[in-house]
Amino acid sequence: MTTHYLVLSALLFAIGGVGVLVRRNAIVVFMCVELMLNACNLAFVTFARQNGNLDGQLIAFFVMIVAAAEVVIGLAIIVTIFRTRRSASVDDASLLKY
């Protein structure tokens, strides 16, 4: 059964990664990053049960905290960029490139 959970987690992680690469809307890209974090958490919880050790759940808990902080800051940045450029597309925020 553990293998199933791990494969599911890998699938979700890969789907999230494809989303990050394919989508242009910054908010949707962000949601895909959240999906990848969630997939990691699933793997952590699964390994915790596999190894009979609570540390995996603890790490998943910390990942959730960090993800919440990251969402707050990231969305604030997206709103700020939207205010100056009137666009939430990741293609438009390219000034640092040059």
Binding site: L11, A14, A48, Q50, L54
Partner: peptide, 26 residues
């Protein structure tokens, strides 16, 4: 999409086979 599929296969085959035996339970 190609990279995502390859990555999924790699992860699933790699990590999925890394575990042997039934879970110990908590």
């Amino acid at each position: 999409v190609v990279g995502g599929l390859g990555f999924a296969a790699l992860l699933a085959l790699g990590i999925g086979n890394a575990v042997a035996g039934s879970p110990k339970g908590l």
